[in-house]
Design a protein around this nucleic acid. Structure first.
Lengths: 194, 194
DNA sequence: TGTACATCAGTGAACGCGCGTTCACTGATGTAC
DNA sequence: TGTACATCAGTGAACGCGCGTTCACTGATGTAC
């Protein structure tokens, strides 16, 4: 363990440059969007020479691909968490999206990264699988694709509108807002039945 | 009317440069995204000197602001078209979004343009008004905000996912897909009641 | 119908900037023996 | 425990590029009289 004396602000080796680049890139994306990301700027922010990032990401596309992959894997895990009903799965989607805006923005802007990357494809496939499996489980008598798409679209719409600051006037908790919107539809249904 | 002789590819004055810049920018946005737009490139594509665009748009933000304004005005008009039920309004939203992907991408990326521009705010207000008015009209016994947000979120989600090529496996007509998804929810409701 | 003139919409050269990428290099670390 | 050496992860200078912006200019158009 090197002593970090007053003379040396940081050691020759960063130690965690790859992870730091991802985190800093996500910060920039959340604040200014993916187009504001530059490898030189990230290096500057991390106090490292501008050529250092190339040892971890060959180019900008590789950086965005890593972010998208991480996002799809994390989203897949979120969708597999224990759920009591289909709404829970939808709320997990909104919770992940609003909690990881940087990942989501990259994931749904495929021109930024290698969409055809096998790992990406596999992670995305597992997300779809989690979604449609949940739809089939909670609505065994319906078409799981139809139910799955309806839930995905609704929750994706809420998350996207919320991230775009279109729902500011409806509170600051996107998950509760999603619950309110979705349960409104459910209540309406019950009203029609009773 | 100037004769366009073989020697002169185009006259000194373009004639419609402002409109052409908007159209060409929209083309670029649809193909490569807003970050691919550069004023010099647009000028190049239109066979005009790279300083010409500044006579019509002071900077890139002004160009994107004009696109967003046009989009909100066109969307507002689309949402006011005659509708037989709330689904019609939703389908108009999906129809406009899928038919004008460039506009939509800019509109929902506020960092690109002057969100606080008074004309923009007014046009956006009129879109919201059209939405919630329709919700109140077709569901007079429900909370129009709840119904309006549910419809908006669902249709925005479908449009966004479709534009992001996430729904390729479900056909090539986003409006019919939206109808199928939304009517599935309706059928489920009727099934619960019967 | 003709002329003078203001205004509009272009041109093309020049500038400074940040970017991605390449390169030879060097310091630090891990492993074989 | 010590030494040699391969490998990894940095440095910093250099390059060419496209960009936005500014500037003095010029060609075309519209209007007053």
């Amino acid at each position: 363990v090197p002593k970090n004396g007053s003379g040396a602000p940081h050691p020759y080796h960063h130690g965690n440059l790859r992870r730091s680049l991802l985190d800093e890139a996500l910060r920039v994306i959340e604040e200014e969007g993916p187009s504001a990301v530059s490898l030189r700027d990230l290096a500057r922010r991390l106090g490292v020479s501008h050529a250092a990032p190339t040892h971890h990401f060959a180019d900008k596309t590789a950086l965005f691909t890593a972010i998208a992959l991480e996002g799809y894997e994390q989203l897949g895990a979120a969708l597999r968490e224990p759920a009591e009903d289909f709404l829970d799965v939808g709320l997990a989607y909104v919770r992940y999206s609003s909690g990881h805006p940087g990942h989501i923005r990259v994931m749904f802007q495929p021109s930024l990264y290698q969409v055809a990357d096998p790992e990406i494809e596999e992670a995305r496939r597992r997300c779809h699988e989690a979604l449609f499996t949940a739809a089939a489980r909670f609505y065994p008598n319906d078409d799981p694709q139809r139910i799955g798409l309806a839930g995905w679209s609704l929750m994706h719409g809420i998350a996207t509108l919320w991230l775009g600051r279109n729902l500011d006037e409806f509170g600051d908790d996107p998950v509760e807002l999603a619950r309110w919107i979705a349960q409104g539809a459910l209540a309406r249904r019950a009203g029609a039945a009773g």
